[in-house]
Amino acid sequence: MIEDSESRIRREAADWWSRLRTSDRAEVRAAFEAWRTEDPAHDAAYLRLERRWDQSAFIANAGVSRSRNLDLARPLWTRPGARVAALAAAIFLAVGLGALVIHRSGSGLGSLAETRYVTAPGEVRIVTLANGAHVVLDGDTAVALRSSSAETAARLERGRARFASPLSGGPRFVVAVDDRAFTSPSGEFDIDVGPHLVSAVLWRGSLDASDGPAAIKPARSWPLRAGRRVSFVASGEAREEAAPRALRDWTQGMLSFEATRLADAVDIIDRYCRPRIEVADDLADLRLTGGFRARDCAGFTKTVTTMFHARVVRVADGTLRIVKKP
């Protein structure tokens, strides 16, 4: 009977996964949330399902498949003729393939030793820890991790990372970015550290963002709900807002911008590009909306120069600089 119940929950989770990717209707989302919160087993099954799919999607960015056509790495539901049933089945078949790109931490269970991970531009890596948590590193990212059975501590130096742990009984995350701290007892969230902006997005579970240091000024705290984002600019100003759902897609090789400062968008695309890209100061505050393949640096610069009447010049060190046309 227990096995029958588990099988039913897995089938329901797969059905919800498929429905959410073929419908944006509010009533579908509301029904899903009701099902998910009805039983902790529902949430756990959906979490496992989504993680498996995410891991399989990273194959498009892994070294074993970088020569593949990016069109083939599109989510299945965007391909002509895709069937929902085939999509759900593919998630489970992807589990073994996704394991190819997992990079295991040298830290053992209960170890406090710190291990540093660095990704190259365009590389995406999954670090799976002995305590069951995992961290996904975006291109040109550096993070130091140490873990025990109860906690995973991280120092994110640059770039972007997705942190995820089991929703019940798992280790909590404490992520430090300079004087800011992001604490999550369970769930899944992104932290993005750029030259001009630090932001956090909570996808599931709970997350508390705080800044300091408390020795100099009283620390401020932002307890986030799922689907919310908090951003800190260099001046220390903080802004909380709804996070566009498309922001989740960077693990699948897609970048989405919604009224994003051009300078911030360039910082993100630059994690995948060589030679590097930069933008002139007088264009930095223009707002960009659109979606791009992460490694399509030429397509990104072409779109930006067309939209903003700009051009690309190569500076002395080889960097491509976006400047206004005369």
Rank of each mutant, 00 (worst) to 15 (best):
D43T: 07
Y272H: 12
G318I: 11
F173P: 00
L100Y: 07
D140K: 01
A243T: 02
R314V: 15
T319C: 05
R261S: 05
T301E: 15
A242K: 12
T303A: 14
E258C: 10
A13W: 02
P75G: 04
A130W: 10
L70T: 12
D285C: 14
A200P: 03
A298F: 06
V233D: 14
G236Q: 11
S18C: 07
V315M: 11
E240I: 04
V201R: 13
A130R: 05
A113I: 06
G132F: 08
R172Y: 10
A99L: 05
L109Y: 04
A94N: 07
K302F: 07
V315F: 09
E278V: 11
L49G: 04
D264R: 02
V175G: 03
D285M: 15
V124L: 13
T152L: 02
I269A: 04
G63P: 02
R321H: 10
D249V: 03
L47Y: 06
L224N: 01
P244Y: 03
R261F: 01
V175H: 03
F300H: 08
A265H: 01
P195G: 15
G106Q: 12
A263M: 09
D296E: 13
R287H: 09
M1W: 06
A161Y: 01
G63Y: 06
A284N: 07
A200M: 10
E241W: 00
A142Q: 13
S235H: 10
S111D: 03
A57W: 00
V312Q: 07
L112H: 10
G194K: 03
T319S: 09
A219I: 06
I216F: 12
R10K: 10
R321E: 09
A13E: 00
S147P: 06
W17M: 02
L76Q: 05
W35Q: 04
D208T: 10
T115R: 13
L202F: 06
V127K: 05
A99C: 00
K302M: 11
K325D: 13
H309M: 15
A88G: 06
T141A: 11
G253S: 05
A150Y: 14
V193L: 08
I91E: 12
I269L: 12
S210L: 04
R295L: 14
I102A: 07
A238G: 11
E38G: 08
S147M: 14
A226D: 10
A316T: 11
G81K: 02
D281M: 13
A214T: 10
E12C: 02
A215T: 13
R116D: 06
E114W: 11
A60Y: 00
V101W: 03
L255T: 08
E188N: 13
D140G: 03
